[in-house]
C-alpha cells in the first residue's frame, strides 16, 4: 500500500478514515499502514484533532416562526399570481393571444433597451432609475406571461377533444 499522503488521491482514504466513512476492511488495512508510517500517523492525528474542533460548532436553533414566514411569502406570491391570472384569463383561453402579447412586450423591451435615453432629458438620475425599474418590470411581465402561456397550453392539452 502506498503512503496515503504521497498523493492527494490516496489522502482521500485518510480523510474518509477520520470522518469514519471508510468501510471496515479498508480501515483495517489503513490502520496497519498507519502503525508503520509516522507521516500518516501525524496526518491522522492532526485531521482527527481538526474533526473534533469542527464538531464543537453546533447547529443554530431555527426561529419558531420560520415556517409561518415562509407560508406568508408563498401565499403573497400566489395571490399576486392569482391577480394576474384573473386579469389575463380571457386572453388565456385563446393560446395565440398570450403569444402575441409576449412578442409585443419583447419588442417593447427591446425598444426601451436600445433607446435608453429616449425622449427623457438627462437631467435627473431618478428618471434613469425609474426607466431601469420599468424595464425590469417589463422583463418580469414577459417572464410571467411566458409562464401563463405554458399553463394555458398545458390546460389546453388536458381538455377533451
Amino acid at each position: 500500500m502506498r503512503c496515503p499522503i504521497e498523493t492527494r488521491e490516496n489522502a482521500e482514504l485518510l480523510l474518509d478514515y477520520c470522518a469514519r466513512k471508510l468501510d471496515p476492511e479498508k480501515a483495517g488495512v489503513l490502520e496497519r499502514h498507519i502503525a508503520t508510517c509516522p507521516a500518516c500517523r501525524e496526518f491522522r492525528d492532526a485531521q482527527k484533532l481538526l474533526w473534533d474542533s469542527l464538531d464543537q460548532w453546533d447547529a443554530q436553533p431555527v426561529s419558531p416562526d420560520f415556517d409561518r414566514r415562509l407560508q406568508r411569502r408563498i401565499e403573497q406570491e400566489e395571490q399576486r399570481q392569482g391577480w394576474w391570472r384573473r386579469l389575463l384569463s380571457p386572453l388565456l383561453t385563446r393560446p395565440a393571444v398570450p403569444l402575441t402579447a409576449t412578442a409585443c412586450l419583447v419588442l417593447a423591451a427591446g425598444f426601451i433597451l436600445q433607446n435608453p435615453g429616449g425622449n427623457v432629458q438627462p437631467v435627473a438620475d431618478s428618471a434613469v432609475v425609474r426607466e431601469v425599474e420599468q424595464v425590469e418590470r417589463t422583463l418580469d411581465d414577459i417572464e410571467m406571461l411566458r409562464q401563463f402561456d405554458l399553463v394555458a397550453r398545458a390546460e389546453e392539452s388536458k381538455r377533451p377533444i
Binding site: L15, A46, Q47, L50, S53
Partner: peptide, 14 residues
C-alpha cells in the same frame, strides 16, 4: 484536501 490542510494549520494550537 487544501481546505482541511489550511484548517489543520490554523487550528493546530487548539
Amino acid at each position: 484536501f487544501r481546505a482541511y490542510e489550511t484548517l489543520r494549520v490554523r487550528l493546530a494550537h487548539l
